[in-house]
């Protein structure tokens, strides 16, 4: 009976809980992107990030573990979420990884070479795998509030996931690569129709932009009210500032709704 194989799907989970991090799945990036953006042990020779300010850096706080109380249990944090959308290979996972306190996790398998040609990451990318579902990470804001970041592909055929993702989201960041804008049109349309506050972030690969921001705004046909910012997905502070722009938009909407 050589046709009977024990199903090895459920065998994976318990042994390797950590094995499902995006880093394990995608391997170390072969391109110029340095170790997935996390400022984990601040590199001694790297002055890029200012030395930890007194208001304790939140990064090393071990995720959702406020001391284990054996008897009484802490109430779970209130979750809020921001979506990170964009086409293949534009740097969604890198964006999430740059600011998340956990290595980005993914809920689905990666797309392998089978998808190449359909989802062409462009000439400048050496990517052989990409995400078909969602990468996500989180930032613990305080004991009772936790921010989740969900990365989602921006092509129309992933639209079935957007309703679930957008429900209750504070806002969205649409990541675009200035040399391949077309991937993000469907998701921009979707957010516009759904009334979700969003910001377009142009990921400046190696600091270069193929087009200037005005040309990109024109090409995307987004209104003047939609912020268009340039950022570096590998840089924690750059990602943080871009998310703050998203939150600013979210706040505008919330106060407007409240006033109405």
């Amino acid at each position: 009976m050589d046709s009977v194989r024990s199903p090895d799907w459920p065998a994976a989970p318990l042994g390797g809980l950590a094995a499902n991090s995006a880093a394990a799945r995608y391997g170390t990036p072969s391109g110029p992107a340095p170790a997935v953006g996390r400022a984990q042990p601040p590199h001694p020779a790297e002055p890029a990030y200012p030395p930890a300010h007194p208001p304790a850096p939140p990064a090393p706080v071990a995720g959702p573990r406020p001391e284990a109380h054996p008897g009484r249990r802490a109430a779970p944090p209130v979750p809020v979420k921001i979506l990170i959308a964009g086409g293949f290979g534009v740097g969604k996972t890198t964006t999430v990884g740059a600011i998340s306190e956990i290595a980005p996790l993914t809920t689905e398998a990666e797309m392998t070479s089978a998808g190449i040609g359909i989802d062409d990451p462009g000439a400048r990318s050496a990517k052989t795998t990409t995400t078909v579902a969602m990468d996500f990470g989180c930032v613990t804001i305080d004991r009772s509030l936790k921010l989740y970041l969900f990365g989602t592909p921006g092509q129309a055929r992933f639209g079935f996931m957007w309703d679930d993702l957008a429900r209750g989201a504070l806002g969205a960041l649409v990541v675009v690569d200035s040399s391949r804008l077309d991937d993000c049109y469907p998701v921009v349309d979707y957010f516009e129709q759904a009334g979700l506050p969003f910001v377009v972030g142009v990921n400046a690969f190696d600091g270069r932009l193929a087009l200037d921001l005005d040309a990109i705004r024109w090409a995307l046909a987004i209104g003047e009210h939609v912020p268009l910012v340039r950022f570096d997905a590998r840089d924690r502070l750059s990602v943080r500032d871009t998310l703050l722009v998203v939150l600013d938009r979210a706040l505008q909407r919330a106060t407007r709704d409240r006033g109405a």
Binding site: Y49, P50, A52, H53, P55, P57, P58, A59, V78, V80, I99, V139, I141, D142, L145, L147, L170, R236, L237, R240, L243, L244, L247, D248, A250, L251, A254, T255, R258
Partner: peptide, 15 residues
């Protein structure tokens, strides 16, 4: 808005 302001403050504290 209160919740969003808390998230903004929390993110600003990241360095």
């Amino acid at each position: 808005p209160e919740l969003i302001l808390r998230v903004i403050d929390g993110l600003r504290a990241i360095s």
